[in-house]
Amino acid sequence: MIKGLMIKNGLYNKKGDTVVFETVIFIVLNIIFFAALMFFVWKSASGAGVYEQTYAKQIALMIDGAKPEMTLYLDMSDGITIAQKKASKENIKNIVIIDQKNNRVIVDLSGKGQGYSFQYFSSYNIKIEPVGVLLRIIISDKKDDINAKT
């Protein structure tokens, strides 16, 4: 009866229901949109590209600042975590490559043969070995290698 009176007097038109529904949908869509954007930003920050560049430059500077008969260690736990998600098991062993012919450090965490390379100016012999999450860098004089061979 009350409802009938309200309809008669034009007071019951359901506009209140639709306004609330539309507003809720609008807010939810906005939240989803901005959440997706924030996820994209977070993904970029924790991506392989940033770590590849950082590690390549760190290793090159360590090599250039070192002397023969030095052994250096670099913690690569973050890079290995990324490589384990992106690269195959065989490629994890090759995430850091020392190109002695061109004097370049190449770090590839994605395992796709890409990565980041940085040059060093030392003429010493460089040998790298993964030791758990650490990278062992062994510096030796090239003359030691020649003597060892003879």
């Binding site: 390549a56 430059k57 061109n102 190449i106 043969g113 890409q114 390379s117 940085f118």
Partner: peptide, 12 residues
């Protein structure tokens, strides 16, 4: 003046 290089498709 070294800037480093990003390798694409396996090239150096």
């Amino acid at each position: 003046n070294q800037a480093g290089k990003r390798n694409f498709m396996g090239g150096t």
